[in-house]
Nucleic acid binder design. Structure first.
Lengths: 227, 227
DNA sequence: GTTCGGATGATAACTCGTTACCAACCCTGG
DNA sequence: CCAGGGTTGGTAACGAGTTATCATCCGAAC
């Protein structure tokens, strides 16, 4: 039938392109499979054949984005390991901010059990993160008794919790980086050797000041009865 | 019509009781509104009249449970503030473990936008938590520059992230308490004054040992190529 | 060239949460 | 006692994701 008689790759690519359009148009609030099929000039069954489910489609979109994310992460120098973490944070939050519609759609489409750890924000590529942590450990920058894996998991927990809350649009994107940064800095300060611990505490205070600047105006508007 | 001609309280209680049964029977995996109405001998519209939505029903169930939770939290002495936090953690995780079906059902029924902060685990009663944090601050146990509110939020982020992951059944309940405890202890160690900081670091190591004990057998089974 | 199998289109169907509609009911005010 | 208004039952409907069904069509094997 004319335009629809193409190969599998064409149909996959077309479905992903149309899904991208619909998600962007709706801000991530809706992605109807019927609309997707209609605008993609395919049958309703075809997206399920190719991607399994609606979550599969969104995951495929995220996978494409994450390739871009990796290229953006590469140029970050890791001479100072702790600085590397926070530079990663800045790039990561910016990346998620750009893809807010996709993450909204992902969390919205993800029933509690259909999504494994791949749908958890920040868990796309934990290897490099843990590798940096191990390097800091070997360089004597961390407490000898600490396990780098457990520590990395804790940092990623904070990241995931905040990105998830933000994607549910409970609070503004501006809060995300300082909130995560504060948690990361305080945690690392708790296990870092001394010249680094003080720098991390300073960094935590800077993030905290950012957060308090956000909250201060709102409090004035509401009421000043919070002595 | 016989058994269904009762008062509003009877119908509310009956709906909640039947909902409780269905959720328990399915382990939290399903709660069909049609089945609820049928088994509750009530029209499909009535649960919506009384509770607004499916999430409203699950929230009502959780609210009943939280009354029990509070009675369990009261006897905890708070002579040592940091010990109070971790005692709260133990009681809280046990509480969530008992209510796993409800949290599964809650997360499953909650679209990303229908649930506010009340559906976030650990956010039911943040007042007492923050009050304890302020007490620690006034007692000089915390860094002078720290904001107790920001710090409390970070601790609750870790709590929420782990409970959410657990309720999605990605990992076992045994991991939850040590994972949260490790994060909390390291964070507090990062901002606590010195006699307390060391104790908190010890506590963090104890939690970490628990986690490593869990992981060690699994690694042996898989492969030992992780030098 | 024919035939067979897998993929696709088109459509209907199923379950879900939620809402709408209308008749029947109960409770209250007069 | 009766009228009215709010509440409930019963059912249908809407839109969602997902699956099933059947005809069709494309490509490869014989």
């Amino acid at each position: 039938m004319g335009a629809s008689g193409k190969s599998t790759e064409d149909r996959s690519a077309r479905i992903l392109r149309v899904a991208r359009e619909i998600i962007r148009e709706s801000g991530g609030f809706e992605l109807s499979m019927r609309e997707l099929a209609a605008r993609g000039q395919v049958s309703l069954r075809t997206p399920y054949e190719l991607f399994g489910s609606k979550v599969g489609i969104i995951r495929a979109l995220l996978k494409e984005e994450q390739a871009i994310f990796q290229t953006r992460l590469w140029p970050i120098g890791d001479t100072d390991v702790f600085d590397f973490f926070f530079a990663t944070l800045t790039v990561g939050v910016a990346f998620y901010a750009e893809n807010q519609p996709f993450y909204r759609a992902l969390f919205r489409a993800t029933h509690a059990y259909s999504g494994g750890s791949e749908t958890e924000p920040g868990r796309e590529n934990p290897e490099r993160f843990e590798a940096a942590m191990r390097r800091a450990y070997r360089a004597g920058m961390l407490d000898d008794d600490i396990d780098t894996r457990v520590l990395s998991e804790t940092l990623m927990d904070i990241f995931a919790a905040n990105v998830r809350t933000w994607a549910s649009s409970t609070y503004d994107i501006s809060y995300v980086e300082p909130r995560i940064g504060f948690g990361w800095a305080v945690i690392l300060a708790g296990v870092a050797a001394e010249p680094h611990a003080m720098r991390l505490r300073d960094r935590a205070k800077r993030y905290q000041d950012q957060l308090l600047d956000f909250q201060a105006p709102a409090r004035e508007v509401l009421s000043g009865s919070d002595a």
